[in-house]
Design a binder for these strands. Structure first.
Lengths: 357, 357
DNA sequence: GCTAGGGTTGCATGCGTATGCAAGCTGGCG
DNA sequence: CGCCAGCTTGCATACGCATGCAACCCTAGC
């Protein structure tokens, strides 16, 4: 028993006593067809279990209505949330999602070739970048590329990110205002734009205000690496009294190590601040103070932008930055001033205007 | 500037001075073509940036090499892990993954239609079911369907699951052996096969051994619902001293509520056991005793089975059950006997053979 | 030198749908 | 009654690639 043939438009046409074109039009919204014919076709299609073949359709229309999506680091709860929102957003606009997972920390190039073979209408790369050659190749082919939570050195690739730079600065100010002087920074992936920008913001503010640079370790945005980094950091004689972790996922790792291996209490012995405001970080056990990257707004911006780029491939590159807040919870010592309630949350809004806006 | 035309096989053929067929053969492994010709074609293809069009290829071969994957409940860390493993597994076998997210707790039917339009080679539904009509429809169309972590009432749909029934029984025995008598059960989604089977195993063992049925609440496999259920359960005068949670995700919710709202200590005041052995449940803060559903073996079985079903669509339905272990950590009072070390883990292996195997 | 056979190649066609074009039909208006 | 406009419909073709078939070339064997 070979894979049974699907019913085709021609089969339906025969049964309904119309031409194949009529069947096609019956399934094309806005096409010129009499209501009566449309109904007759619909009935015949129902009888045969007919569904238009998206592959054949894409071949003629030269639009696949598929969007290639790359995602990695799904251990970080931020990304499953993003994936879910993205799926709904694209679905709502009539797009399908071809998902692939690049090797963490590397370019998405290899798997991308397979995805490009599907003539996707656009590419969304979450927490991933692509080589500039491939970026050029996509541009030459007229395929919009959108980086999510990353930016590219190649300025021609659009992106949607959170406020990495401002977040980093604000966290520096928050911790210093809270009275901390022995700061630590736990970097994510070294050559990722997010980690770089957060660090630049953090260290930039410190330097501008005459503070020593923080102790530094690398956690690669991974739980186990972050745990190891925490051990190194906390075992030092000049152990920091506050650590800014490149994201919430690493912050939870640090919290676990600090409490269960070093017997530290948070925030009494150690203040922690994360980035993302997502997942377990919000649970009472962690109650993480964190700069937020609001998933829904970021995904909304992504979907809107990618649709726009599909409509108008010649549109200029855009770098959308979605506003976040420093959400104050219990994992870091709280400054006496600057905390305001906002939408049932406490956020940090220092009164003094930052000189180096 | 309209979306630029991709180079086609004909373009490459012209440049290389061969026929379009030769180009096709150059990109078809095993096709009859002289090495020299293949190289000339490859060079021409490189110059033009040519990639075979997967859409056109699928139209002629009648195989898309795309597998539709449904996933929901991504808040439960189990599923992102599964998704990642699945992506790599399918990729390795040359399949792409068309991902969609059905509305939680409902049939996957609506979005499924769109996916079927792509003539996917198979469907994998994780934590989802489909209506029996649609199951029939897929069978009629010769599309293999595989349920992951669910079974269907319709016996004709294959599945890969963990040992839900045995796990439930073992957990009952574990808790009773540990001295617990006031048991609670936190159900997942009422009409999901996993929750039903785990409960059947749990309650079945209790009944067979003359114990009262557990107190029961429903958490719908969701964090907030599980939290609410935990509040109801723990506020009772006859509060349980041990709760079997339908999965780890809900168990963490219960742990949070128990500790931070009721001031209970785990496992001194309350024992918790989960299911899945995944994600935050393994962190020291939760250190959850849990029946494991090993992701990699489950995904391996899934990939193997789905490929087999594609090769041979007439193959009989199969229900693969992947073995798990009751991994013993710190969230539940430990029986004095029955714990053995296995691969650097403590697992519960009661000596007495279960009569009702 | 001739033939058989294996390895290559091109030709022609088909996959299932969308769509430009022209033909057919209908109704309204002069 | 004639004509024109507008709505439907069918015809024919194109989309880009795979593949059966026949033609071709080359080599080995006799």
């Amino acid at each position: 028993m070979s894979p049974k043939r699907h019913a085709t438009a021609t089969d339906v046409a025969r049964l309904a006593g119309v031409s194949q074109s009529a069947v096609s039009r019956a399934f094309t919204p806005g096409a010129s067809i009499a209501e009566e014919t449309r109904l007759r076709v619909a009935e015949a299609a129902r009888q045969l279990g007919y569904r238009p073949n998206a592959i054949a359709r894409s071949l003629t229309t030269r639009r696949s209505r598929i969007i290639g999506v790359a995602a990695s680091y799904l251990q970080n709860h931020f990304y499953p949330d993003v994936l879910e929102a993205l799926s709904r957003g694209l679905q709502a606009r009539g797009y399908q999602m071809l998902l692939f997972m690049p090797d963490a920390g590397r370019h998405a190039d290899p798997q991308l070739q397979e995805v490009l073979a599907w003539r996707v209408d656009a590419l969304i790369l979450a927490s991933t970048t692509l080589s500039s050659e491939l970026a050029d190749q996509c541009q030459a082919a007229g395929i919009p590329v959108l980086l999510f939570n990353r930016t590219s050195r190649a300025p021609s690739v659009s992106s949607v990110t959170g406020e990495n730079l401002r977040g980093g600065r604000l966290i520096a100010e928050f911790l210093v205002t809270g009275g901390h002087r022995r700061l630590g920074f736990l970097a994510g992936i070294e050559n990722s734009s997010t980690s770089r920008d957060r660090e630049r913001g953090f260290c930039g503010w410190l330097e501008e205000h005459g503070h020593r640079p923080p102790l530094r370790e690398v956690g690669l945005y991974r739980f186990d690496e972050a745990s190891a980094a925490a051990r190194r950091l906390l075992a030092r004689p000049d152990r920091p009294d506050a650590i800014f972790c490149g994201n919430d996922h690493m912050a939870t790792a640090v919290a676990e190590v600090a409490r269960h291996e070093f017997g530290l209490r948070i925030p009494r012995d150690l203040s922690l601040v994360g980035f993302d405001d997502t997942g377990p970080a919000r649970w009472p056990s962690f109650s993480l103070t964190s700069f937020s990257q609001p998933v829904q707004p970021m995904v909304d911006a992504t979907v809107a932008l990618v649709c726009e780029m599909i409509e108008n491939p010649a549109a200029p590159t855009r770098h959308e930055v979605v506003r976040g807040e420093l959400v104050v919870r219990g994992s870091a010592r709280m400054p006496t001033e600057g905390c305001v309630s906002l939408a049932e949350q406490l956020v940090w809004r220092p009164a003094v205007v930052d000189a180096a806006g």
